[in-house]
Design a protein around this nucleic acid. Structure first.
Lengths: 337, 337
DNA sequence: CTCTTTCGTCGAAGCGCGTCGCTGGGTAGA
DNA sequence: TCTACCCAGCGACGCGCTTCGACGAAAGAG
């Protein structure tokens, strides 16, 4: 492996000059810059990460903490993770993958060892153990998701309250009066993950304004549990004419069940999904949906964390506005029986 | 941040002694070890990652390269990635997340900068650009997947040939004569990703021995494309009594379509899936399936890579034996029409 | 009782890079 | 012509850790 010193010798300059060529922190004559750069290419030089980290106390690494559980929709996680990695590379940084398993200890370890310059934490719960640590840590961090008390933190999330409201608006427009929400697994609510509750709150508030009734049933996402949730919904509210699904795994089973029960979509029942576009368009009926802007969340999180690394202040709360795409699964409410 | 030197002063020993306590590379009296360890705890000392990497030329980081594309089943990737991260932590290592986007350049960069001690590469294609680089690199690497020429490499994969054969055996046992494979997206075959072709080959060879006929249709995984694949299958071979599905996304749509067409599973058509257990049990019919041992692959890859880091030699080719779990989707072939 | 080992510890020399302060030569202003 | 200044480049130091050789003390061998 070539070193800085070897490049310097090869180019006939001192080591510090090569360093300044690389960092651009002092002016260098065009001529020597050229010479140094061609030496770098010729020797295939790559700066040693450890040495650079030691000398500059910057590792150019961002830690990304993903949840270990898999009861949430994984592709969204993955999409965010990939967007984070890609964006970070654009800033000259790499991404360290931490699983939730280590929990708060990982936060301490990474912060204290200088392994990473900053952290991005996904799947934040309303009352998350890691939050106080992050708040007190000297290292910058960005949360994807919203804890109960976001004071002193930087958070990025989809505006789920607005998402709920948007669904309500769309359905009200079509004259629906009885709406049912097929939600995430009960465990998600029990953990008080913020997004599920906020969606529901936004939907309920706006539905009230529109004079719509709302009921809500959690759902594991399996065929069985989806069948159960649907059965209970139509039992309790036979006039239900619209479903809002916030559970990607339940989408397929639900459509299959409705078809089986002879309920046509959207003639008898309208369906709005909160899910990635890919799921919406691959379903048996093209679904009207509000997308989870996974890529944008990942990208935004990195931009914020980079701003904080550079010493700038970052907007404490970034709520991405939801966008509803109308497809084939929503239409006018059927005339009341 | 406390440093080694501060710990040493606090414990009344030299820095090197503290270092040896940490690494265990020289004998230390029980008494001083105690003293040093309590100083470490008291000061909340964590070794500086950069300094350690520089001095020892070992970063304690393993790079994991995941594919950028999302036309493969993502949860499996994620499960492997998480297994890798978890296992690596058990070895005192962290995981750096690289996306396929950078391609071969990432391999060079990581190897030359000493950012990582080793690499694990997922989603290897039969003729992969990264393979020659890895083969020539001084740093250890392990592939998950099997390239055309695995000479000089260390590879881990499910034994897909045996998987295909296992499916054939199972179906032959039930007297099926006409088998159809619903495969991955055509793009997967075009890229010559090894696993899809090997499954097919294993299935075909064993089917021949059993006197079964096999046809194969690729499938994007959407409802539409699944419908198309099924239609063509039953058009060409109306007597098809068994389906082998190697495409997780197609499982749901396929079962829905069969139901719609009045083909009962398993009375009219038997179905064997090659997919994670979770998908198999969450489907509307509990599927007989061969699981992708994602966790085991991730774990094994780390174990191999660690052995190579420690200087040992690693088994060049680890093929994990497939396991078929019989559930409710396979049964005797219907009497021929 | 001396000579060699072994054990536990120390000091110092780096690992490869970033950064500070300095210098020599050129330019501009007076 | 002299001072004032800026530009390019250099040398030295230090970041925090690992590791090697050395050394004193205790223990065993002759």
């Amino acid at each position: 492996m070539a070193t800085l010193a070897e490049v310097a010798r090869h180019a006939g300059v001192s080591a510090s000059t090569v360093s300044y060529v690389l960092s651009g922190k002092r002016s260098i004559s065009e001529e020597t810059r050229q010479r140094v750069e061609s030496s770098i290419r010729e020797l295939g030089y790559h700066p040693n990460a450890g040495a650079r980290a030691l000398a500059s106390s910057r590792s150019h690494i961002i830690a990304l903490m993903v949840p270990l559980r898999t009861d949430m929709y994984v592709p969204v996680m993955m999409e965010i993770a990939i967007a984070v990695a890609t964006t970070a590379r654009g800033f000259g940084h790499d991404v360290l993958l931490l699983t939730g398993e280590e929990g708060p200890e990982a936060v301490r370890r990474v912060a204290a060892s200088g392994l990473a310059d900053a952290m991005i934490v996904m799947d934040v719960e309303l009352d998350d153990e890691r939050v106080p640590l992050l708040r007190d840590s000297a290292r910058p961090s960005v949360l994807i998701g919203l804890p109960a008390d976001p004071a002193g933190l930087t958070c990025v999330d989809l505006d789920f309250t607005a998402t709920g409201a948007l669904c309500a608006d769309h359905l009200a427009q079509f004259g629906h009066r009885d709406v049912a929400v097929v939600g995430e697994a009960a465990a998600v609510y029990r953990r008080h993950t913020g997004f599920a509750e906020r969606t529901l709150a936004g939907l309920r508030a706006r539905a009230k304004e529109h004079g719509m009734r709302v009921i809500h049933r959690p759902c594991q996402g399996s065929y069985e549990s989806t069948a159960g949730a649907l059965a209970r919904i139509f039992e309790e509210r036979p006039d239900t004419s619209a479903l809002v699904v916030q559970n990607e795994a339940a989408v397929g089973p639900m459509l299959a069940l409705l078809r089986q029960q002879g309920r046509a979509v959207p003639e008898d029942v309208s369906v709005v999904a909160i899910c990635p576009d890919q799921v919406a368009v691959q379903a048996s009926v093209q679904l009207t949906s509000v997308a989870l802007p996974a890529q944008e969340m990942g990208r935004k999180a990195v931009e914020l964390v980079m701003a904080k690394i550079e010493g700038g202040e970052a907007e404490p709360l970034t709520l991405l506005p939801p966008q509803l795409t109308v497809r084939a699964s929503t239409g006018p409410a059927p005339a009341a029986a």
